[in-house]
Each structure stands twice: as structure tokens, then as C-alpha cells.
């Protein structure tokens, strides 16, 4: 899996198919602070990812 982290850095991760929420937690990120795009499309974090999926983890903002 190719993972784009909230700070813009990239990581290659090999692991078996898992819930996106778990993958995000394992990367040390609080799932409540991010939304995740799988292959360019935002998906609920109970969806799974693995193999050659590309994940983009976005720390969305709330200020105005």
C-alpha cells in the first residue's frame, strides 16, 4: 500500500487487508482527526484497504 501521510510524506506499507481505521491507528494517527481517501475517493473508515491500494490521509481543518 502506498500511504500519503497528513504531513505530505509518503510511506510504503505491506500488510494484509485491514480496516482503514486500524491502519490509521497503527500509524499513530487519531482517526477522529482525519478523513481517508482510498484510490482518490473518500471512504468511511470501516472500509478495508490492502494490496496495491493508495491511501491519502487528510488532516481536515476546522478554523475560520
Amino acid at each position: 500500500m502506498l500511504i500519503s501521510m497528513p504531513d505530505g510524506s509518503r510511506r510504503v506499507l505491506s500488510r494484509s487487508e485491514a480496516r482503514i481505521e486500524e491502519i490509521v491507528k497503527d500509524l499513530g494517527i487519531n482517526p477522529e482527526e482525519v478523513i481517508v481517501a482510498k484510490n482518490g475517493r473518500i471512504v468511511p473508515d470501516d472500509e478495508t484497504a490492502g494490496g496495491s491500494d493508495q491511501l491519502k490521509i487528510v488532516r481536515f481543518v476546522h478554523g475560520g
Binding site: 481536515f60 481543518v61 478554523g63 475560520g64
Partner: peptide, 10 residues
């Protein structure tokens, strides 16, 4: 919708 934080926005 729009929101910002620091140098980031959406």
C-alpha cells in the same frame, strides 16, 4: 464550505 488552519485549508 470552507475551513482553514495555519497554511492549510479546504
Amino acid at each position: 464550505h470552507g475551513a482553514i488552519s495555519g497554511y492549510q485549508g479546504q
